[in-house]
Design a binder for these strands. Structure first.
Lengths: 227, 227
DNA sequence: CCTACATTACTGACCGGTCAGTTATTACGA
DNA sequence: TCGTAATAACTGACCGGTCAGTAATGTAGG
């Protein structure tokens, strides 16, 4: 019913020219459904999200959803799979292409992560994975391998670059990497959990800048720039 | 039935001497139920946790659970309320009692947090609150005010001490506080989400030490100790 | 008119919450 | 000290709502 109204009201579910053939939006549906599912999963958690609502937000009925995803779990997996992996591929290209100081590379990487993930609704995925890790070990493992590990390796390369070039002190790389990612990651998680309580919300840009400044200052091999 | 077996099998529900009177464990039940609920909530999330399972883990039947908590939501609230607040009161006493360098105080605070919360099953509560924040705004607000804000104020006092004494550079305190807490907090969350994927798990003690070393080194007003 | 896409109506498992009944423990009179 | 009545603690079958998943039905393009 909300459904019918949506279809009647908008063009969103109408037929549309695509790939030189008239279709009934078959090609656009998966992305629309994933976007709707991401929003709701992040907001209400896996169990708290009704497929009726996902479908309705995407402008279709629940039955249609099942034409594209065979179960709620498959939908969930697709959200995770399609969400972040492409972004990390981009990050890897950044490191490959980089020439210059490790410091600059790290600044760019963290900033890019925030802009492409943290600041968008993709930032909800880490929260979602944390929340549901216990219920979907298999998806969690996929996420860990394809996203977490990958992200760590990426940053680890940058850190090692800095150590080898003498920019940074020789400290355990894997721990440094975690220290680098923790504040940024947690800031993203925060947006989807406690942010609405936080009466004095922080400015992501200045926070990010301070984080990198202090961290790199702490890592630097030579005497630090005084304030 | 699984129930009956449990009761027959163990002494857990048997009568016991307490406060000079024979009771049927009435006094011990709430704590047992909360412990069971915490474990399951953390592992499976709020919606994923069945009250039958909570009861059974505590060695009683579901009916009994309702003698102590009037609804699932009340049980959830109790888990949050009873869990962390006492620990933070202890932390406040630490700061009050402290005399010495801000650096030492901060080391002690973070270490104490890890030992009393992060390393125990109380460490699951942050994860739980993050996961369920969207579904329980009221509880989230309670948690934010009584735990998050309180913890921040605690650390903020220590940081301000260091700035005023000239130990640290004069940087925005609220952001420094977040930088201090993020890695520790995330480490706790990690334990209950991705830890089982992490083939090279990190040693909390050395990680904590490195975090404080690098951070304080980055904050220090004078030239840093070169590794 | 038939195929592909979509909707609506329906089913059944599951689980929070209830409550009539059972068992353990205490109180008390003889 | 021993019944026996009174009560507190606890049990587990049951009810009702919710929602993932399915089946029957509709409708527009070619």
């Amino acid at each position: 019913m909300g459904m019918g109204a949506a279809r009647k009201g908008g063009v969103s579910a109408r037929s549309v020219r695509a790939e030189g053939r008239w279709t009934r939006r078959k090609d656009a549906r998966p992305a629309e459904l994933l976007a709707a599912a991401l929003d709701l999963f992040v907001e209400r958690g896996y169990a708290g999200t009704r497929l009726d609502d996902v479908a309705s937000r995407a402008g279709v009925s629940k039955g249609t959803l099942y034409l594209y995803y065979s179960s709620k779990e498959e939908l969930f997996k697709a959200v995770i799979r399609e969400g972040l992996v492409p972004v990390y591929e981009h990050g890897e290209r950044m490191v490959d292409a980089h020439s210059g100081s490790a410091e600059d590379l790290i600044r760019n990487l963290l900033r890019a992560w925030w802009e492409m993930i943290g600041a968008t609704n993709l930032g909800g995925i880490p929260k979602l994975m944390i929340a549901e890790s216990g219920n979907f070990p298999e998806v969690t493992r996929f996420y860990f391998d394809e996203v977490v590990s990958r992200g760590r390796k990426l940053v680890a390369r940058a850190v090692r670059l800095g150590i080898e070039s003498g920019e940074f002190r020789d400290l355990p790389v894997d721990q440094i990497v975690r220290l680098m990612l923790a504040p940024v990651m947690l800031m993203a998680v925060w947006r989807y959990s406690f942010a609405f309580c936080d009466t004095t919300p922080l400015d992501p840009d200045s926070y990010l800048k301070l984080h990198v400044d202090v961290l790199l200052n702490g890592l630097r091999a030579t005497e630090p720039a005084l304030a």
